[in-house]
Simulated scan of single mutants.
Amino acid sequence: MVSFLEVVYWVTVLCCLGQKHLVTGGCSGKCCRGRNMGCSTTDWRMDRAFAKCYCDEDCIKTKDCCFDYFTECPAQDCAASAWSFWSGCAKPCQPSVRVRVRQVEQQPGNGGDPCPSLEERAGCREYRDHRGSQCGLSSGPAFITSLEFGKGRPKHDSYGNPLDPGFCMEFKMESRTAHCTVENRPHTLWMRYITEGFKVCVACEPPALQNRSCQGDGQESNKEAVLQWQAVGNPHCRGTWKKVQKTPQCTCPTQHIFIFT
């Protein structure tokens, strides 16, 4: 950004030079992307020299921009659309991944912020195969994922009737693997909040509720029973927990609320 003192300097220089070096327009109508050697003119440069100057994006790095580059070629940040709906799971009847995408609506320019990631993947599990038949139940750990990925679950059946809202299970974390903290992908960051000794809440909602997928939650087990869980989206993030209590709604802090998949 040009400071007030710099503006005073240029006004003074231009007034003093008279007709010797008139400003010829600088970057007006000459802004270019990337490095373009032809995107130039002869005018006052930002280093206060009257010489060949440029109006391309790379002139900021090479420090040879024309004096009015930042006003005539303002930075343009990348603009992306809203995320699409999540796709279905890649594989039915087993932990898998789903995808959502977004599109670039405005390309970055003149040193503006680059585009963010245009695709996200998240762990998921569906309960019907490609023919619509219900998947068979299998024994194993309770599969959990972030509460964020449960927002798209249906709240009504095909006739418009409200589905059973389910319940919440509170657990005390007994153990977890180190793999829960090493992932940096956006859809796995929630796993960092699974901490030993902490109380976590897990919502059991349709379709997990309808398919008895909460059977590993310990609701029928002794409170002292050590049960297993696994994070969907990272099969190496797993551990054990003990049941605390069953409640109508989850009351844990948001970052400690998960859902059964």
Rank of each mutant, 00 (worst) to 15 (best):
C93A: 09
R102H: 07
F167A: 03
T195H: 04
G88I: 11
E183R: 13
E120C: 08
S117F: 06
G166V: 02
A90M: 14
A122N: 07
D113Y: 10
C124S: 02
D64L: 07
D129A: 00
G88W: 07
A178T: 15
E72Q: 15
P108T: 05
E105P: 02
H179Y: 14
P95S: 12
V101S: 11
S81P: 00
E120V: 09
Y159W: 11
T195E: 12
C73F: 04
L118N: 07
D113E: 13
E183G: 12
W83D: 05
C78H: 00
H187M: 15
V182H: 12
C115D: 08
E119H: 09
R100L: 08
G160T: 05
C78M: 01
C78R: 00
P116A: 15
E196R: 11
F85L: 12
Y127R: 02
Q103G: 01
Y127Q: 00
K172V: 10
P95K: 10
A90F: 13
D164L: 03
P74S: 02
Q107N: 12
G140Q: 03
H187C: 11
L147F: 08
C73S: 01
D164Y: 04
F171C: 06
M191I: 02
Y127C: 04
E183V: 14
C115P: 08
Q107E: 14
R192D: 08
R102K: 12
M169E: 10
C93M: 10
W83G: 03
T145C: 04
E174Y: 07
H130A: 15
G166T: 03
A79R: 15
F70T: 12
C65W: 05
F67M: 12
I144E: 00
Q76D: 07
W190P: 00
Q106P: 02
C124L: 01
G132N: 01
A142D: 06
A122H: 07
V182T: 12
C180P: 03
D64V: 08
K63R: 15
D64T: 12
Q103D: 13
F70Q: 13
R125W: 08
D113K: 13
H179I: 06
P154L: 07
F143E: 09
T71D: 13
P154E: 06
C115R: 09
R131M: 13
K91P: 04
